[in-house]
Simulated scan of single mutants.
Amino acid sequence: MQIKALLLLLMFLNFFLVTGCFNSNHPQTAGEHITITDSIGRQVSIPRQITKAVVSNRYNMEIIKSIGASDKVIGVDYGIYQDQTAYGAFFFDSNQVIGKTQNELNYEKIIELNPQLLVITSNGSWQDADKKLAPFGIKTVVMDAYYTSKFADTYTLAGKIFNKEPEAAAFIDYFQTKLQYIQTALKDIPKKTVYFEYKKSGTTTVPGDYFFDMLEYAQADNIFKTAKSTEIDIEAVVQKNPDVIIKVGAAGVDPQYIPPTAAEFQKRKEALRSRPGWETVTAVKNDQILLLSQYVHGGASKLVGTMYIAKFLYPEYLPELHPELVFKDWVTKYQQLDYLPGHTYPSLSLTD
């Protein structure tokens, strides 16, 4: 740690000696800056024209890509880098990796890349980053792409940061129209009870958690909506006897643009069905189990996942909602990728 601190100090001194001031890395006049309010309410002055940014967290990267600003990104964390197929023409090499995670950033690499700003989420080490990068004229902006209920604010923020406000507004309208349709169509429909599980056995969602609003927007009755912890005893699922089970991802599996095979999905489903006592659960008896890949559920701050869940719960009431088509739009129009079906089990057609 002492060696790293010394290297950082030497880089800082070199920067100071060469430039003569702390912020001339990116010389801007006052009129060339704008002030934005980031996801945690901080007022941050940033260059009006962002041409070089580094990004932590794949949800943030997906948002940036969906508004057409990928070409402004010159560095990413390992979580983004490891799924090379998800970024198409914007292929990041190992020299652009800025850290293992958003809590393990490589500040020497960030300073070497010399971006105008770092985009990070609030559960990352943004405070540490802000303190260490500010002397080099590198701004730190918190952008929380996790929360479904904040998607409009997050996309609006991204649009302001990257000067892509019309693109962000069009994206927001695309999904808000679909959310309004779900809300209107299901207004007087009794909600189905749902057990949601994320990757590991017994990991669910509760108020304040990243996945909670995805279920709320889908008009699901979360059986653990009053729980205090996301870690629950799976025997409680038997006692609460949900109508439907929704599971995202699998333990030890990273999110990938390439979908799981049907055999892998079947294996995950059988693992659920074979849990002690679960043969008595209504969702198991009626085969009301929806499996989503980790990639598909998270699109557009989990709005893509919302569409699948709502349609699975209430297909007869949502004839105009086609979640697989929404996913296709997400990957082809907003992520500039080929459409690869098969991210859900059971799978859906474009007209379902």
Rank of each mutant, 00 (worst) to 15 (best):
L292S: 03
Y181K: 03
Q294P: 09
A185L: 02
T156Y: 03
L290A: 07
S94A: 11
T332Q: 13
M1N: 13
S293K: 01
W330C: 07
I189S: 06
A300S: 09
V97M: 01
S347V: 08
L337S: 03
S274P: 02
E62Y: 04
I34K: 15
N286S: 12
T282P: 05
N222M: 13
Q239H: 09
Y217W: 04
A129F: 13
L8M: 12
N103K: 14
A220Y: 02
G342I: 01
Y314R: 02
K132I: 06
M214D: 02
A170R: 14
G68V: 04
F265M: 10
Y257P: 07
T344N: 01
K333W: 00
P255A: 12
T177P: 03
Q335V: 06
Y198H: 12
N222L: 13
Y334I: 10
T193F: 08
W330M: 05
N163M: 11
G75H: 10
G305I: 00
Y308M: 02
E112D: 14
G252F: 05
V44K: 15
V244G: 08
V304W: 00
D287S: 13
D128A: 13
E270F: 05
F212C: 06
L348Y: 15
S56Q: 11
Q336W: 10
Y210E: 06
A152Y: 01
L290H: 03
Q336S: 12
L13C: 11
G31L: 00
G298S: 15
K191V: 06
A86T: 09
K269S: 01
Q102R: 12
K132Y: 05
D254S: 15
I64Q: 06
G75Y: 05
A168Q: 01
Y198P: 04
I74V: 15
Q239V: 07
A158F: 00
Q294M: 08
T280C: 01
I50S: 01
F92P: 12
S149D: 13
S149M: 04
K200Q: 09
I64H: 06
P260H: 06
T37A: 09
K187P: 02
K247C: 04
F312G: 08
L118T: 10
L7C: 08
K178Y: 02
A53G: 10
K131L: 14
I289L: 10
K267T: 12
L272A: 04
E264Y: 09
T29M: 04
N23T: 09
Y210D: 12
P135I: 05
